[in-house]
Amino acid sequence: MKKLNFDYHMHIAYSQEVEECYFTLKCLPPHTQRQQPGEIEFLVSPSRYWSRGEDSFGNQQILGRAEGGHRDFSFHVKGVVTTGIQNYEAEGTENQIAKYRYPHGLTCPGKGLLAYFRTIKPPQNHSPYEWAVALMHKLHQDFSYEKNVTDVTTTAEEAWNGKKGVCQDYAHIMITLCRLAGIPARYVTGMLIGEGYSHAWVEIFSHGLWYGLDPTNNIPVLDSHIKLGNGREASDCLINRGVIRGGGTQTQTISVKVEEICNGSDNSIANRQNGANHDKNNRISKDAGR
């Protein structure tokens, strides 16, 4: 169990004025059996109004709108999260599992992934959890981390065929493999201790509980990850989704700081990263014609 201090900051600079913008932010850590958030502060600017709600995947969401000629948009969320209280999450209702067992959108397998799946041997007398761990190990071996070779629209199949990608691709491929194995699997967004970006990993369902597995780092999710949202694939739980009118070109900057609080003293192992980035969990789509 850890107590983690986090600070998530997203900023978009526009080359031209934005006339109108709608946003949906799934950026608040939920209270689950694995983690308990506290002292959450949230700021968004500019906004004419914002309100809170919950989507159909159980994610907290902030909805809002801004208008009237701005060249910047940013939001900032920080707080403390106790993680690793349990190493699982229980599902409230059985009937919410099935949708995570079927291919959807970017996680539909093609020839490449179907063939790859057939080469992986399940462990003897395996539980779904053990099978998923074996899939994770294998994927971690056969896929390598590289930025800027994939983008937010890359399917699991395409990423697999290129053998390179980032956390979104690892997660999408692993989800596809798990579903082929009949294991319900979902996409998770969040933050990892010591990372400068937002992160993505996978939760798989085994014997009535959801367990986190991080295929990018080849580790189980225990107390170093803070979860923000989940869904069938990335687009269900984008941390930041928007529609804008105007704006020209945009430059997005994300800085994430996650550090452990030990005995009240700040034992920081965080790193902070600035500059234009290609973070996979954030997407602003341009909708100039509306």
């Binding site: 989507d55 159909s56 995947f57 919410q96 949708k99 959807h104 069938r232 269900d236």
Partner: peptide, 9 residues
């Protein structure tokens, strides 16, 4: 035709 986005609404 099934839309998971409409669950629980």
């Amino acid at each position: 035709g099934y839309m998971a986005e409409c669950e629980g609404v």
